[in-house]
Structures are given as C-alpha cells and as structure tokens.
Amino acid sequence: MSDDGGRDVEAPPIISVRELTVRARDRVILERVTLDIPDRDVTGIIGPSGCGKTTLIRTMNRMAERSGGLAISGSVRYRGQEIYAPEVNPVLVRQKIGMVFQRPVVFPMSIFDNVAFGPRLNGLDGDELEAIVLRSLERAGLLGEVGSDLDRPALELSGGQQQRLCIARALAVEPRVLLLDEPTASLDPIAAQRVEALLFELRREYAVVLVTHNLQQAARVATRTAFLYQGRLIEYDETKRLFETPREKLTENYVTGRFG
C-alpha cells in the first residue's frame, strides 16, 4: 500500500496494522491488511456490508477475540507496542483505545454512573470523579442538554443523546484512540449531524477511527479514508483524493455507485 506524502507524514502513527489476517472457521474475513492510523485526526473506513470493517476495528482494541472462532494473525501496534504480545493485558489496551458501537449502548443506570463507569474502575471517586464526568459530558457536547440532573436514568435520553453519552463515557476513560462503528447509523439526521460535528471536534485531541456506510459522512469528517472490499484493503488515501480520483476501479465503482 502506498503511504504517500500526507500532511502528517512526519508524525508517527498511533496504530499501525501490518499484514493482519483474520480467519473464521471456513473463510477469510480480513486478508493481509496493512494500514496506519494517524494521531489527532479522523480516519474513515468504508466498504460494502460484510467487507470486514467492524472486524478490522475490533482487532485494534482486542475486542475481536471475544467473538469465538476467529484466528488472528499479523501485527497491530499501538504507539510501537505490539498489542497481541502474550504479556499484554487486553484490559489496558481497551483503556487506551476506546470504542463506540453502532447502536447506543447505555447501561441501565443514571447518566452520571454511565460516564463514571470507566473512571470508577480505576479507583476515582469524590470531586475528582465528578470533575472528570462533567468534563467528559462537556466534551461530548451533552452537558448543556442534560443540565444539572445527572441522576436521571440514562435510558430516558433520546437516541442521539444516548450515543453522545456513550462517547462521553468512552472519553472519561481518557483514551488516546476512539474507534467508532457506524455511530450515527441508528440516529435521525439531526442527531447524526450533532455526533458528526462532535467527532470533528474530537480530532484535535484524539485519534478517531470512524467506520461508516455514509460516504458523505466520511467525506465530511475524515482526513484519510480506507476502502475495504471482501476483506482486503483496496485503497487508503486522503479522503478527497480517494473520492475524486480513485486509483482502483473497485473504489471508483463503489464511490460513484454510492452517489449514483
């Protein structure tokens, strides 16, 4: 894969995937995928349904091994560190590399407790905990909306608010990377737009990896975009270039078909 001169070429990637192959019992889900995720930027991952997008980002924080029967080979490094090394604790990997799912998954507890979930695991409490909860809600653009009543059940929030709560909850763990798997797919356009805007903001402090079916969304938010097809990385480039002058025929078909 070409790793041609982007703007951030001099900065080291925060995650580098090399020759990643994921096999299910009788088929290959990802085949020799190699790509770098830059720090403090939004990276998009697009591709038709079933091409392996979810599997790819789930290998990046060792969630993939939870789905049984997958054989993972190759290398995933987080800031130069091999996350699949035997001595690595996946719990710590996940603390550094957070994840948000397609459908908002809030815990059946209060807004505060949802956001405090991660920090509490790390032993935070009292003022410190409250500060980090408020900061995370603010970063997720939710503080103004939910107001002072953080003891409300989180399930009372709207879908869009719930998804931003999930983002706030992930941020509260203070990760460096945020993996998002179609985070706006189940939201209405207005709610989706808010989440999208939030991601764009987050790019200043975090490495954001955004899996999306919505090509316009990738075009709007992602600096670089990877196109996956049938488990292979077809093209990975600056988003503008990928959409306007794709090098591969497959990419062109996909991007134009989408807009077509």
Partner: peptide
C-alpha cells in the same frame, strides 16, 4: 460533492441546548 464546509460547527464548550424530542421508548 460536499466536504467539511457545510457542517454546522457547535460552539466550543457548552453546546447549544437544542431540545431533542424524547424517544417514545417508555410509552
């Protein structure tokens, strides 16, 4: 093809308190 320009960017810090219609989950 639109790019990043048309996104309505929320103000930094506290976002605009637009009322979001509550989902009819409970009902």
């Amino acid at each position: 093809m639109d790019r990043r320009e048309p996104i309505p960017r929320p103000a930094d810090g506290a976002s605009t308190p637009t009322p979001v219609p509550a989902l009819p989950n409970r009902r």
